[in-house]
Design a protein around this nucleic acid. Sequence first.
DNA 1: AATAAAATTTAGTCTAGCCTAAATTTTAGA
DNA 2: TCTAAAATTTAGGCTAGACTAAATTTTATT
Lengths: 225, 225
Amino acid sequence: MPEAITQSIQDYLKHIYELNEHGGAASTNDLASRLSVAPASVTGMLQKLANSQPPLVIYKKHQGVRLTKNGEKAALEVIRHHRLLETFLVKTLGYSWDEVHCEADKLEHVISENFETRMAAALGNPTRDPHGELIPTADLVMPADESCPLASLRADETATIRRVSADDPALLRHLHKIGVVPEVKITVKNYSEFDGNLTLQVEGQKSNIVLGTAVTNQVFVEKEN
Amino acid sequence: MPEAITQSIQDYLKHIYELNEHGGAASTNDLASRLSVAPASVTGMLQKLANSQPPLVIYKKHQGVRLTKNGEKAALEVIRHHRLLETFLVKTLGYSWDEVHCEADKLEHVISENFETRMAAALGNPTRDPHGELIPTADLVMPADESCPLASLRADETATIRRVSADDPALLRHLHKIGVVPEVKITVKNYSEFDGNLTLQVEGQKSNIVLGTAVTNQVFVEKEN
DNA sequence: AATAAAATTTAGTCTAGCCTAAATTTTAGA
DNA sequence: TCTAAAATTTAGGCTAGACTAAATTTTATT
């Protein structure tokens, strides 16, 4: 019989998923810092996950870790919970988009399938959360993401903001204030080759804004066709 | 500094509170069966709670346990969470009153003060949950309960149902079906001295019903003045 | 290719909260 | 009041998931 997927394991799987999305295998150190846990603790858990029945990860010493199909399903379940919860907190309880992360991080581990289903239905089965992140479907498939970093745009390009993959509440509040939120159209007025700064015209805003790469790498857009 | 109040401790305090409400001190065995834990485990936890700084319970060997002021506040916090959550699940997500208990038992430990406040506001600061249980106030005071067991009524007495303190989902579904829910008026048509059965006329229902003491002891009413 | 630095793993501990078995205390009935 | 049964506590263990310190492997730099 499959061993229990504890809250702690859910957190490991979720972060491995996110690290796998970007670079290839997730490293011990990256996981440790994301989970706020000592690297040695990560090694121990990875060994356990790799030896569980069925295995949730594929792990080779010193070479990082990847999710198995089973591990990915478990990860997507947690991510679906998280993103539905963020949406629910904003839509139903009036949270702002910079407040929802912590709350969802705790709730994601304890809600039932029943809760998930009712919440999704109450929200009209949304496909994106308040930050524009894609919500895995009920049968645990992650929709394809067509967006690219805002940082990759150049002068005169026009695009629609799709997601803001930032955690920092202060940054989120700032971006909200200057109108940099999902589904808003922007046009690049200038690109600085020295620092990568972009000058943007934001739909619905009076004056242009300048954003550095630390920010534009966290904002994802779809270019005008 | 006060030690952390873990989920496990919250569960102990909640059940000690409920046992203190009825009989005096809560016994080791009663706690063990409510918590689904071995009696020896309860003894260990009670010693810990009594020695914590500040103490959360007063405990003397073989004589059961009572909450201190601090312990009571912590218990009421959890109970407030639980009852607000039950109300929220019914009102906002369309749960039926027999489904909410398990879900609330998990969520009660993880929601923030922010969540509690927003939820209470969204519900209009309710004073009772879907079963009619009183909800502790935001400053953690339990309102006085004026009700008495339905089982204590006799023929010709009329009363209003205030709460249904039952856990069993099947019983709850049955009571809902026959209209035995909070705020409904009932009249006792007959009392049987042999088995304690009550024959009731239930407001809004066509035919009378007969309920045994196993049920009437779990339903609480306020008599007509 | 040598070596220093960084990353990772091993080894050994710790804590919370549970467990069982055995010992003890309390309670109830003859 | 004595004794059997019930309730409770003690003693000793276990597991998950964290930790630190030390050992090892990998990577990067000269």
